[in-house]
Amino acid sequence: MADKRETFDLPSEFTFTARSQGRTITEGDFSAMTNLTWTTAEYHTNKPLMLESDFGERNLAGACIIAFALGLATPSVRPRLTGLGVKLVALAGYDEVRFSSPLRPNDTIYVETKVRDIVKTSRPHLGVINFEDSVVDHDGRALCTYVRSAFCDVSESALYADPSIGRAD
């Protein structure tokens, strides 16, 4: 049985959805990511074969979609969180990753992000923020969903309770 981690009580300002800027994944982007990740399956690399298949075009590998999404998602939430006194520190991981539709060359993608929760850690100034991200294309088709976690510094936010306050020294 997994233990339930204690979370911060989030004020209403934390319940927002941010939509990233759009990014059209060009042939160059598609080729660069495919080559960078050594994705060699013909589903990703053989255009003539895929044009004749049921897929109708090459599909970008899932790991590449997540990499593009991280680059789009973080800048869309960072200013809002910084304004609330929360600073993103480092990526902690991904959970609940699901791919529902393919990403093809020349698709334009956006990432819609909302804060799920912020988990407390043993350090009062440090938390783990969990985002629910959804990668969608220009037609609103969902391509991928996941939970992205990052360490965050909450010491300048309303969430922070200074442990030295109320201590009798």
Rank of each mutant, 00 (worst) to 15 (best):
A2R: 13
A2P: 15
D3M: 13
K4C: 03
K4A: 09
R5K: 15
E6N: 10
T7W: 02
D9P: 04
S12C: 00
T17W: 02
A18H: 09
R19A: 02
R19N: 06
R19K: 13
S20M: 06
Q21K: 09
I25K: 09
I25M: 06
E27F: 03
G28I: 08
D29T: 10
M33P: 01
T34K: 09
T34Y: 08
T37S: 14
T37M: 09
W38A: 05
T40R: 07
T40V: 06
T40K: 04
N46P: 09
K47L: 12
P48M: 03
P48E: 08
S53F: 11
S53Y: 08
G56P: 07
E57W: 11
R58W: 00
N59F: 02
L60I: 03
I66S: 01
A67C: 10
A67E: 00
A69K: 03
G71N: 15
L72A: 02
A73W: 12
S76Y: 12
S76T: 01
R80F: 10
L81E: 00
L81S: 05
G85N: 13
G85Y: 09
V86G: 13
A90W: 01
D95E: 15
D95F: 04
E96Y: 05
E96V: 05
E96P: 07
V97N: 11
R98S: 14
S100R: 15
P102E: 05
P102V: 02
L103D: 14
N106D: 12
I109S: 06
I109Y: 07
Y110N: 00
Y110L: 00
K114F: 00
K114N: 02
V115S: 04
V115F: 03
D117W: 02
T121D: 05
S122A: 09
P124E: 11
P124S: 13
H125W: 06
H125K: 10
G127R: 09
G127H: 05
V136T: 12
V136M: 08
V136N: 06
D137I: 00
H138I: 01
D139R: 05
R141W: 01
A142Q: 06
L143V: 00
C144V: 04
Y146V: 01
R148N: 11
S149W: 09
A150H: 00
F151Q: 00
C152G: 10
D153P: 11
S155F: 09
S155I: 14
S157P: 13
A161L: 14
D162S: 07
P163K: 03
S164R: 14
I165Y: 12
I165D: 14
